[in-house]
Amino acid sequence: MTRILTIEDDAVTAREIVAELSSHGLEVDWVDNGREGLERAVSGNYDLITLDRMLPELDGLAIVTTLRTMGVSTPILMISALSDVDERVRGLRAGGDDYLTKPFATDEMAARVEVLLRRQNTVTAQATTLRVADLELNLISHEASRDGQLLMLLPTEYKLLEFLMRNTGQILSRMMIFEEVWGYHFDPGTNLIDVHIGRLRKKIDPPGNVPLIRTVRGSGYVIAEPV
């Protein structure tokens, strides 16, 4: 379940946030002070944070600045009674992803949360999955599939495919492939690369599929969308 951290010292506002987001199927934890809020946020166990600007012990601006400095990229919806433009700009520049002014409609707050969650999911998917046509490579599970069918790759085949897909459309020389995948200087007398490309092709481009891996005579290999 998607987990939200709400850092808000006003109990009435906090209960409204918790009730609204819970009605959307989200799990919400509430903290009423900045210091504990920062400790919870640093844990990295949350999908999004709603953060009050003015808090006891540690204010919201200090929290978002600290989180971004520490490399915590959790989306943050800043909520504040301070409505001037400069304050909004200050919050967003510090690392907030959106800024909502009090008083606010709870349905608008929930809509903004949903937008930030969708945006984060898209970024995460892009960061962990490589795609060329119907070929997908999951960088987390180290699994490859084509047209939804799982491909059984050996470790070296996976490294070779990842290098090709990270450079989609770019011709990669044998030397570039050799040094990236095998990690030592290229021996022009070996056919190691050709053998592994051949094995990979049998799995990636079997009969009946449009070939994705192409040989560029005299230059190397390239993986690209079908022409």
Rank of each mutant, 00 (worst) to 15 (best):
T106S: 11
D84L: 11
A224E: 11
L61Q: 12
I177L: 13
D147F: 13
D9N: 14
N191Q: 10
K202C: 01
Y46K: 09
L5S: 06
H196F: 00
R15E: 15
E57F: 13
E157K: 00
L154A: 12
T106I: 07
G208M: 09
A111K: 02
P206N: 01
D47W: 10
M176W: 05
L77G: 01
R166G: 14
R166T: 11
L151N: 04
G25H: 07
I171G: 01
I4D: 03
Y184T: 09
I79Q: 00
A62R: 15
A110R: 04
V85L: 14
G220L: 06
A105T: 09
I177Y: 08
V227R: 11
E87T: 15
A105P: 08
A144P: 00
Y46D: 05
R174S: 08
A224L: 05
R146K: 09
K102Y: 11
I79S: 01
S22I: 02
D59K: 07
A111S: 10
L161C: 06
R214T: 03
R15H: 13
K159I: 09
P155W: 10
L137T: 03
A11K: 13
L130N: 07
E36W: 05
L135N: 01
S173I: 07
L51C: 11
E20D: 08
F178W: 14
L5M: 12
R112N: 00
V210A: 12
E39R: 05
I63C: 04
M109E: 03
D205R: 02
L38S: 02
L55I: 12
I7G: 02
V222R: 13
D29L: 10
M175C: 04
R40H: 12
L100D: 12
V64E: 09
V123G: 04
N138G: 07
E143W: 11
L135Q: 03
D84S: 12
R68M: 12
D205V: 01
N33L: 08
S22Q: 10
H142W: 08
E108V: 13
L153C: 05
F104V: 01
I177G: 01
L100Y: 11
L139C: 04
S22F: 08
K202W: 01
R119L: 15
E157W: 01
T156C: 06
Q170D: 10
I63W: 06
I223L: 06
